[in-house]
Nucleic acid binder design. Structure first.
Lengths: 177, 177
DNA sequence: ATATTCAAGTTTGTAGTCAAATTTGAACCC
DNA sequence: GGGTTCAAATTTGACTACAAACTTGAATAT
């Protein structure tokens, strides 16, 4: 499974053993749906796989079918290794919009302007919504660094917004495509 | 297959029929490896699948085994539909770094500062490299809008760089994590 | 002529993703 | 206390992604 899935699942298990469903809920609480793609099946798959690899071990299996996993020492080391690696290396970000941008010349001027208008509105709404969430979680005792994720997301959305606003002007003046 | 794969493959076939290998080379020429994830197998899979769906049709099969595909009218409409959709909608960007950021408190201050230093250096290098490429393709007859992809990429990298530089200060002052 | 090499072109198998479907268990109602 | 309902928890299987392995053909060397 992807490096992100591994980090997320191992990360959830650092403090206490959990079963698959609890891992999933933990990810929900973290708001992982906003910045990661981890589906149901992938969690269970990941748990099973990493147990095979010795990064996790099963505690309290059987009974009513629920299987609780606990992180091993090897698992902690792997978590730390992956975490550092993801902190260090800059991976190119994949945005389907950039694919669409490549074929800009296949759309009419009006189609481009209409789409850009829609994008700009969506981007503004997202930025507002996320900005409004700053500091909210702290009130419930979450650590400060949670907000950094929001800051970074807003920064990226703002970069896209700036680009789109400039692009509108260039298209209107027929400098593009 | 993903919407991006469809757009990319259909887009390559707009002007002339091609076989799988030629599609792949066309994507290489476009520099698709920088902003998309389209592997070998996915291209052939996509060609076969879209042929089944009637978006493509096989011309000149057999012979030495090579199969040439041509876009159909339905294919052109689908391309246009997908293209507009990707232009219009803002999808959340998935960045493995944001996953790592969530677990910031599991690293030591020194580890964080070292990693950030590495990231900052990488980001600066990428920004310089891409900025240096502005306008280069035009000299070889490529359309202007190709540069927009580069502009957008640089804008996103710059946003990440700004964030990282600010984060270093916050960590040094123990405001984080 | 035959061998060698290399790019062109495709197939295949493994591993992974994902959401729908299924099973389990406990709380609640009359 | 039997039935109903709903959240908890997992399984399943269809679909995808990917890269390694394979085939083919044509050019070059011997």
């Amino acid at each position: 499974m992807s490096s992100s899935t591994r980090v997320l699942v191992l990360g959830c298990l650092l403090d206490k053993p959990l079963n698959g469903y609890q891992v999933r809920r933990q990810l929900d609480v973290m708001g992982a749906e906003h910045w990661a793609n981890v589906a149901f099946g992938s969690i269970y798959h990941g748990l099973g796989k990493m147990a095979e690899e010795g990064l996790l071990e099963v505690v309290e299996s059987g009974k009513g079918g629920k299987t609780v996993y606990q992180i091993t020492e090897a698992g902690r080391m792997e978590f730390h290794r992956l975490l550092l690696q993801n902190w260090y290396e800059v991976k190119p970000i994949i945005d389907p919009f950039q694919v669409a941008l490549t074929f800009m010349d296949r759309l009419t001027k009006q189609e481009i302007l209409d789409s850009l208008d829609g994008r700009i509105r969506q981007l503004r709404m997202s930025i507002d919504a996320i900005s409004g969430a700053y500091g909210v979680k702290q009130r419930y005792g979450a650590p400060k660094h949670i907000d950094e994720n929001l800051h970074l997301t807003v920064a990226m959305l703002t970069a896209q917004l700036d680009w789109a606003e400039k692009a509108v002007i260039r298209v209107e003046n027929d400098e593009l495509p």
